[in-house]
Design a binder for these strands. Structure first.
Lengths: 347, 347
DNA sequence: AGCAAAGTTGTTAGCGCTAACAATTGAGGG
DNA sequence: CCCTCAATTGTTAGCGCTAACAACTTTGCT
């Protein structure tokens, strides 16, 4: 049975017959097309008998609603646009997956537009692309401080959810509590007895970069420790490597909190080459817990973020905006620390 | 109504009025709506004067064509569906980026559906999702041998491009020459004097896994070497680690060609723990050249694939199918080897 | 029984666009 | 001057669906 239905609905018969319409279903069920429309839209006022007859006709014909026609009249495309940068990175890619899952579950389609570099122009191009498509809402997966401003300037007339934003602006936000994550990392080091704890931050114009640096600082100040050891990287393993080469000769810190796992990898490599032992000479903590982190040399203590959950929350937020007409808000996902072999009490 | 009011809160200028239609542009330009349609569709028979007047009106009103209305009448959505698994991995994510870039450049929208596990059912669900949306074509980014069969059984009536397939079936394909990549890796090891070269393959029911294993075998046989040292992993760093622990005590090979960089990372970690030195005791080659590979311990010799180019080729292929009505075909991207410190002549 | 209210179904009118055809104009030839 | 042909522009009819309302049927209460 299932086989046959599936077959009918995907029938390759482009030249002969077109796909069945509401009218065809109506005829077969002996009702008006509007009644069929009511059935597929779950309107309450349809008798049980009629509904069953219509559903049978739908199944027999393998009817599927034409999205374009529905969109035209309802002015809703049931499509969400995800505006993303750095999609080849573990975090954003998984967030996208979370959005996609929640969207499909809710009957929405997900359209994507990737931007190569963060600029008002590229964001504007992508947003225009989405407006041309008629998306119902936009999820901005561009955790850069410039994103918010660029998007606000566009005066879009659809809801926007910004990942990484705390929702204080005109848009809703969904974020992982980056400060908390940073505090967890630093407090773990403090508990082990470290007094000189440095930080390799991400770019400070990236929301996550700034937040993690701020969390690091807060945790240090609260413990009465100095917050002077900070260097800015660019998220890449290469930048972590370069910075690691300098730190290896400086001997300033007994522990380093690194802004992400990739820079931590570079740092570990540089330390390895320079003969700095981790964790005996210096402890290292990363951020993200990408799947490879447990196989670094040594396995990396890091802060785990649930990116898929973040993506799902984004979509939940979007659905609330779309269907309940809710106002802007924010949702926060909590990170947690994963302790591995790259951290130990100082010598 | 309540919803629309909520949306209005995102509007800047025109809070009451809806977007301009063809009719509005026509009125302003003093022509018929059909003439405006001709202008935006670049029909030849429009006088220069009229065209300019219409274009001015379009610009003044900020007119944008309604995609739903156009799709309804043309039966084309200008949307490509990308059916993907493993989107959080470096390769697939970058291929998606290539598809997106080429698609947007060509005026197409990109819709995605991710599948959690490869099965006929999940592929069927995703395909149905795309058909509901009315996509013009599907790019299948699921390099699994089961994909092709599952998709063919669905009798889709839109063009399909399968990544990783060589295009011998009903669908077009775009692929990186995996066998060539494997040969490059193995020949590099042979040139360095290795005689016992093992392979940690990906799952053999994944196209890439099977192809790379086959390339490894061919290169060995051609050089008159034995092809008996092969173990199957699951692409993850964890599986590479587990296999590495066994290999470390076996001492069977002087070099290992690993199916991807992540398993290679796990292998390096296991070797490191067991005191097996790379490359002095065993040489290791990976596959993919993900950005971190150069910072492994030691930096990994690996085979680079240009995933974005692969994605672009997919989209080119799709456009050819869509607009020129071309038949099925295939396009092949060539990989190249990147030599780093994880390989050296045997002791 | 009688009549309002609620439940159920049908009819009509578009949503904004393009395809097909009709109408108009101007140029050139007899 | 008429006619033909080509170039340009306008008119009409849907694409498949839902909203709004109209029409009919049942129910419940006096």
């Amino acid at each position: 049975m299932r086989c046959r239905l599936a077959h009918n609905s995907f029938m390759a018969n482009s030249s002969e017959r077109r796909l069945p319409r509401l009218e065809d279903v109506a005829e077969r069920a002996g009702v008006s097309h509007q009644t069929v429309s009511r059935v597929i839209n779950n309107h309450p006022n349809v008798s049980k008998v009629t509904r069953e007859r219509v559903e049978a006709a739908i199944a027999e014909l393998g009817y599927r609603r034409n999205t374009a026609a529905r969109s035209l009249v309802t002015r809703r495309s049931h499509t969400i646009g995800v505006l993303a940068s750095e999609l080849s990175q573990y975090g954003p890619a998984n967030t996208l997956l979370g959005v996609e899952q929640a969207a499909r579950d809710a009957g929405y389609f997900v359209s994507i537009a990737a931007i190569r570099e963060v600029s008002a122009e590229s964001i504007s191009d992508a947003a225009r692309h989405f407006m041309d498509q008629g998306v119902d809402g936009i999820v901005a997966l561009v955790p850069h401080t410039g994103t918010l401003q660029a998007l606000e300037n566009l005066n879009l007339d659809v809801p926007v959810v910004v990942v990484g934003s705390s929702g204080e602006g005109r848009f809703s936000g969904a974020m992982v509590d980056q400060k908390l994550g940073a505090r967890l990392a630093v407090e773990h080091l403090i508990e082990q007895g470290h007094k000189r704890i440095g930080h390799i931050s991400g770019p400070r114009d990236w929301i996550d970069g700034a937040e993690r640096a701020e969390g690091w600082r807060e945790a240090l100040l609260q413990a009465g420790l100095a917050d002077d050891l900070i260097v800015e990287g660019d998220w890449s393993a290469g930048s972590g490597y370069g910075i690691g080469q300098q730190l290896a000769v400086a001997h300033a810190a007994t522990a380093v909190f690194v802004g992400n796992d990739q820079m931590a990898l570079g740092l570990l490599r540089a330390f390895g080459e320079a003969g700095v032992r981790v964790p005996q000479d210096v402890s290292v903590v990363g951020f993200d817990d990408q799947p490879e982190a447990g196989y670094f040399t040594p396995p990396l203590t890091t802060v785990r973020q649930d990116f898929e959950e973040l993506g799902r929350r984004c979509m939940d937020m979007m659905l609330a905006l779309l269907e309940d007409g809710a106002g802007a808000g924010a949702t926060v996902v909590e990170p947690r620390i994963v302790v591995r072999a790259s951290t130990a009490p100082p010598a």
